[in-house]
Each structure stands twice: as structure tokens, then as C-alpha cells.
Design a binder for these strands. Sequence first.
DNA 1: GTCTATATAAGGATAGAC
DNA 2: GTCTATCCTTATATAGAC
Lengths: 214, 214
Amino acid sequence: MTTRVHYENKREQTTRERRKQIFDAAVHLFIKKGVVNTSMREIAEAVGITTGGLYHFIKSKDEIIRMVTENSIYAHESLKTLRKNLGNVSPTEAFRVCAKCWLTVQEFGLEQTAFLDREKVHMELDVQEAVSDLVRDLIHFFEDLLNDGIEAGEFEVDNVTLVAFNTYMLRGIFATRQWFLKDRFTSEEYATQQTNAILKQILVDRSKIQPGGG
Amino acid sequence: MTTRVHYENKREQTTRERRKQIFDAAVHLFIKKGVVNTSMREIAEAVGITTGGLYHFIKSKDEIIRMVTENSIYAHESLKTLRKNLGNVSPTEAFRVCAKCWLTVQEFGLEQTAFLDREKVHMELDVQEAVSDLVRDLIHFFEDLLNDGIEAGEFEVDNVTLVAFNTYMLRGIFATRQWFLKDRFTSEEYATQQTNAILKQILVDRSKIQPGGG
DNA sequence: GTCTATATAAGGATAGAC
DNA sequence: GTCTATCCTTATATAGAC
């Protein structure tokens, strides 16, 4: 979140860039092939150096995995910021905008969610716990949005947790099911249609659903 | 599906039993720890023999993975059989029963679906293709159910493929997200509530939803 | 049918040259 | 900062004894 404009020297800048390169390449490979099937040699190759060189910038494979978790915290925070910035809109509108944003791809953000989701099993136990906390926290965020709508009489929800859980899940699903979805939906269409699908499920007055997305 | 009651001799029976033991233990470990993190030693240990002994019954780790795929074909077939046996019920009823059945745990059936879903990336390419075909086929099955309901005027669906896709996905999600769901839902409750959630989304007349499941 | 011992391969990580 | 060479560990799979 903090953007440092002035680097202390050229070398530090290059190191940062290299770390980012490595991180991006790694996450991309992790999603495509799985963490365990991605070797450090491949990651090195992807950024154009050798294994030895790679370890000059990152301590271990585990460090890269931890970076994904930390990075995802920012993605979650920015969603909450979005909600705050919306201010006093109706609960329906708030849910629509937040769900849509959550389900839309932004660079690697979505791949990271999918990664956390699918590859949890390959992480150290403390990282697994951190990921669980992240997920619980974001499901809770959607629960709040839903409860707002219920109080306002706009939503009718049988089980708030379940709908919040589903909303959370739909994001990771898009990234890992590209082989099925990519020919049928753009990320934009997927986000819009899934959001509408949820709204159709919970809105008391269905006419409030905005058309679009196919 | 073919039940062979008479084994040719005692040895063949024992071999079958051992293979089943190994298969069950392996799938269970695969789901819990991931395919790559589960060693043949562990699988052997789980059935009470050593690695060397294990290879007397199965050719390779890959063979076990292929068995899951083959086994899942039966699960899918039995769902189709269920639909046929329902006969001339209303589309709403047909969808409800099939979705509910699909989303309910039956022994290891559900773990296998979750496995195919999450561990696809660790399979040989030809197995990956076979899994994709299986998934496409079952999504198509749900599409048919939905189209029946649309024709009968009972359903109103914006995107049939998306709803069918979601229905399919919800099964795997239950198995891999136990850490979140198991304190909140029994398998039965999960199945009922998710089915109702989908129905709420697609039914023209929402009063047809049966209450229950919490 | 199950064991022990071992061949073989692959990947993570380090040492030290340049 | 990047390379080469290599160590160490782990895992699949096989050979052959019992």
C-alpha cells in the first residue's frame, strides 16, 4: 500500500524489480502447473537466470509462497476500502459493486486467490492458518454486506454464511477452471453474471437486477 | 456397475480386497495432504505393508490416480440412472433430487470428485483430458435438467451453462473446504441448502422451494 | 504375499569462481 | 549479480530373499 518513490540507490531498485519478476513468474507457473511441479530451476529460467542466481534474490521456495499470502492481504484490504469509499449507497448497490469487483480479474490478483485456495495443502502449517484467517475475514466482509441488505428489507437470505461463502469461492473458481470458462466468458462477463445470479437468489424485488454481461 | 459375486479363487478375492484397501487409503491421503505430498511409503503404511509389498498390487502411483478417474465415471453414471428412474416428475422435482444427490456425500465418492478437481494439475495429460470430458459431460447433464424446466415454464435462467457449472462445482467445494464448512453444516444440510439456493435463483415461482436443511 | 536393500532420478539449496 | 558444480534429501520403483 505504501508507495516508495525514491529508492536509496540503483541497486535496491533492481533488486526490487527482480524480486517482483521472480514472484510474478512463480505465481504464474504455480497456477499453471501446481507448486510442487514447479521447480526452482524453471522459475529461474522464466526470469532468465540460473538456480544459483535465483537464490541471490529469494531465500527459499517457501518465501515465495509466503509472499503470495502477504500480497493477498492487500487485495482484501482494497476491497474493504472500495466499500468505504462507496459511502451511503443502498445495500443492494454495495453488494453488487463489491461482488463484481471481487469476481473481476485484476492482473495477478485473481491467480493469487486461486493459488491460496488450491495449493493450501502444500504450505507450511502456519501459512495455512494465515490463509484460513484471510478467507474467514473476507467471508465475514460479505456477511456484513448481506446483513445490511436484510436489515434494510432488500434481501431475503436463508443462510447468510452460505451465500457469503459462495461469493468468496466464485473468484478462485474462475482462475482454476479457465479450461472450461475461458471460451464461454470474459472475466467481465463472468463477474457480472455471477453477481446477478447471486442477487437473483437474495433480492426480495428481483426487478432491481441490472441486465448485462451476456 | 457389474457385480461379480463369484471370485475365481480365494487369491483373486484377496488381491481385489487389497487393491480396494490401497485405493481407499490413497484417495483419503491424497485429499488430506495432496497427491505429491503423499508418498508410496505412507500409502503402504496406511494399509499395513511396506513399499515393496505395495507394488505387488499396484503398478505405480499413476495407476492409483487413474483408478480415481475410472471410479468417478460410475458415480456420474449412477446420477444419470437416478434421473431415469425418477420418470415423469416435474423438472423442478427432477432438478431438486439430482442436485441434492450430487451434493450429498456418499462414502468416498465426494472425496474423489474433490480430488479430480484440485489435483488435476498433477495428472498425466491424457488423464487430465479424461477428467475434463467427465466434467463437461456432467455439466451437460445439469444443462439438460435446466432446459427441461425452462421449456416447462418452471425455470427462468439467464445463463444455463453457468448455473449448471455452479451446480457441478459446489460438490468439490464441500470436500476441499471442510475446514470452514464442517463446523457449520452436515453434508445433508449443505446439500439441501445449496440446492434450495440454486432453486431460489432459477424458479419462476419461488413458493415451490421446500423448506429444510437449517 | 511381504520383506529388505538398493538403483535411479529429481529437486531444493549452497559454495565459490568470475 | 550471475554462473557452474555439487551436496543432500526424498521419492518412485525394482530385485531378489524369505
